[in-house]
């Protein structure tokens, strides 16, 4: 009575630590390659469940993040195949670049995910007013593109283009700040 299963306890504890350490990274990764919030929630849970079931296969001397993203990537691909519709950006090259950027972020200084990507705040602030308004409205106020277009008094197409341009400027800024690797680094 009252005995404690130390091995199981250790496994659960290790998993919980790894899950907490990588949770926000995993969400950001899923948000990068999946657009539907409900699907992201499902895939997050599924990835973590698979990770728990396969914990014994993990080499804990290596970073857990890449392995977790590998699991998530396969589940996302399976999801898209089931839907019979891959997103337009989907290609091996793009996915390799995305993985490279997440690796670059993971080695950034900072104890938390937030701290690792804190430079993004500075980059948003450094945008022109028009681009900053677009980014803030779309992401931080959660406006739809149509609502944002109304707010900015522009067409939906122009609004989409402004968002694309703003994201590209942010990527350049993050590269200058060494949060992102320069594209050549992955070759």
């Amino acid at each position: 009575m009252g005995e404690v299963c130390l091995t199981r306890r250790k496994a659960e504890f290790v998993f919980e630590i790894l899950a907490r350490e990588n949770s926000r990274m995993l969400l950001a990764f899923l948000r990068t390659i999946v657009d539907d919030p409900a699907t992201i929630d499902d895939l997050y849970q599924e990835t973590m469940l698979v990770a728990w079931r396969r914990l014994e296969e993990v080499d804990l001397s290596k970073p857990f993040g890449p392995w977790l993203r590998g699991v998530a990537g396969k589940l996302v691909l399976a999801h898209y195949r089931k839907q019979k519709a891959l997103p337009s950006f989907w290609s091996e090259e793009v996915l390799a670049h995305i993985e490279g950027q997440f690796r670059a972020i993971s080695i950034r200084a900072g104890d938390t995910w937030e701290e690792k990507i804190i430079a993004l705040h500075e980059c948003v602030e450094a945008l022109s007013t028009a681009h900053r308004q677009a980014i803030r409205g779309r992401y931080f106020r959660g406006l739809s593109v149509e609502e944002l277009a109304d707010l900015l008094e522009t067409s939906v197409d122009a609004c989409k283009k402004r968002l694309v341009r703003a994201r590209k400027l942010l990527a350049e800024c993050l590269t200058r700040k060494k949060v992102f690797s320069a594209s050549g680094d992955f070759q």
């Binding site: 950001a28 993004l120 992102f180 594209s183």
Partner: peptide, 22 residues
């Protein structure tokens, strides 16, 4: 490919900051 990837990652990071609080 890298341009597309970077833009997607920025999209994910922005959502991460905006939606996924600690």
């Amino acid at each position: 490919a890298s341009e597309v990837a970077d833009e997607r990652v920025v999209h994910g990071l922005l959502l991460s900051l905006a939606v996924d609080s600690e």
